[in-house]
């Protein structure tokens, strides 16, 4: 693929939809194949991801204080069970 074609592919906006999880399984595989092949595409995806992650952090909603313990308990219970099984 020529540089212009890679550019054009990026400009379709498909990488944004990929990161947002708003594409079909076929398109997803296609994007992943392209990312593997072309470092520019991989880098573009990484930039989109970083920006959206920062945006989510900026829009964070803090859970109530007791939720932390509740979640940790429910996960560590699974943790103990997993260990017991092995």
């Amino acid at each position: 693929m020529r540089v212009e074609d890679i550019r054009a592919y990026i400009e379709t906006g498909i990488l944004e939809l990929y990161v947002l999880g708003d594409i079909s399984p076929e398109e997803k595989l296609q994007v992943e194949g392209m990312a593997e092949k072309y470092p520019e595409i991989k880098a573009e995806i990484a930039e989109i991801e970083k920006a959206l992650e920062a945006y989510a952090l900026q829009n964070a909603v803090e859970p109530s204080n007791q939720l932390r313990e509740q979640v940790l308990n429910s996960l560590t219970t699974g943790f103990a069970n997993n260990n017991n099984r092995t």
């Binding site: 829009n59 964070a60 909603v61 859970p63 932390r68």
Partner: peptide, 13 residues
Amino acid sequence: YDMYSGSLLGVIT
């Protein structure tokens, strides 16, 4: 939990 609960809850809420 400490690193991501707020960001994830923002989307869920």
